[in-house]
């Protein structure tokens, strides 16, 4: 019975997949999502998004509050279903309620508030929650916990209480909880927004490592421009639409356009731009080191 379903599913997916193999990790096809607001009537949180995210990609989704970026994230793992259009995750349609379980197995999500996504009072029990839900045999759950905690560098906290940990540590536990399900996509919905700079660094390091070493597709929803620099690709959302899409360097080179979406440049890029405006011939720089080098180079020339 099981084999039969898999075969038939594969056959269904096989048709569109053959046209443009390999199957993209996530695909939005003219997706709209509306909700009814008491004051504003029908609101388009996501308004006609078409977007393809390849497997193994590290994509940052940028945007102001209310730009629809969090809704976009929830549409991916079927927490929300599109009002119009189609969202597919490795070929599985999120509109199909029966596939939600499969989709969530392959697209894990880490949320904003580290305190509101822990279910157990002991770290290992919390990490075990996902694998328990998908029915992993007991011996294997132990192995998965070990591997997940190792991947986020929290092995020594296996028997600790989450409420006593720092924000960055709690978020790493949340990431471990998702990793234990062994997903192919990791969605971080503003997961660094409530953390201090140290905690943000911890989480970003873990996420980058997962992307590099395990080939995990990472979708990072954020409003920190510095974090976007660490991605391969940045997507800018504004009023429910994708307005910019490219490498972070390309995006940040269009500073004026970014400003119209109420977004600022990363600090180093901002300083660099002001220097250029002031007449100093510095090349483009996006982080502190690049900026220092650019300034040095321009001083040497001058």
């Amino acid at each position: 019975m099981e084999e039969f379903t898999t075969v038939s599913e594969a056959a269904e997916e096989g048709v569109p997949a053959q046209a443009e193999a390999p199957v993209p990790a996530v695909r939005f096809e003219n997706v709209k999502y509306t909700y009814d607001d008491d004051e504003e009537g029908t609101v388009f949180a996501v308004n006609g998004v078409t977007l393809t995210i390849r497997a193994g990609e590290f994509v940052a989704v940028l945007g102001r509050n209310g730009s629809g970026k969090s809704t976009l994230a929830k549409l991916i793992n079927a927490l929300l279903r599109p009002t119009e259009g189609k969202v597919t995750v490795f070929g599985l349609d999120t509109a199909d309620a029966k596939k939600a379980f499969e989709i969530r197995k392959s697209a894990g999500m880490v949320f904003q508030n580290p305190d509101n996504q822990t279910v157990a009072s002991v770290v290992e029990d919390d990490v075990a929650f996902g694998p328990e839900n998908i029915g992993v045999p007991r011996e294997e759950i132990g192995e998965r916990i070990t591997a997940a905690l190792e991947a986020v560098g929290m092995t020594e906290f296996r028997h600790a209480t989450p409420s006593r940990l720092s924000g960055g540590q709690k978020q790493r536990i949340a990431i471990a909880g998702v990793l234990a399900i062994q997903p192919k996509i990791m969605i971080l919905d503003e997961s660094t927004a409530m953390l201090d700079p140290k905690g943000r660094r911890e989480v970003m390091d873990v996420v980058k490592k997962l992307n590099k070493e395990q080939g995990m597709t990472v979708i990072l929803i954020t409003h920190f421009m510095e974090e976007a620099l660490e991605a391969e690709r940045a997507v800018v959302m504004h009023r429910g639409e994708v307005v910019m899409d490219g490498t972070p360097e390309e995006i940040f080179a269009r500073a004026d356009e970014l400003e119209t979406y109420n977004l600022t440049l990363p600090r180093a890029a901002y300083i660099c731009r002001r220097l250029q405006e002031a007449g100093m011939p510095v090349g483009n720089a996006f982080n502190a080191e690049e900026l220092a080098e650019a300034i040095c180079a321009s001083l040497q020339k001058g």
Binding site: K74, N77, L79, F101, R104, K105, G108, M109, F111, N113, N116, Q117, V119, E124, D125, A128, F129, G130, P131, E132, N133, I134, G135, V136, P137, R138, I141, G142, I145, G177, V178, I181
Partner: peptide, 21 residues
């Protein structure tokens, strides 16, 4: 929030669930 987080981690009740401890 917790409900969303539990959904995202594939929680679907007692059915088909294993227990670690």
């Amino acid at each position: 929030d917790l409900g969303d987080a539990m959904d995202a981690r594939c929680y679907s009740g007692a059915k088909g669930r294993t227990k670690y401890k």
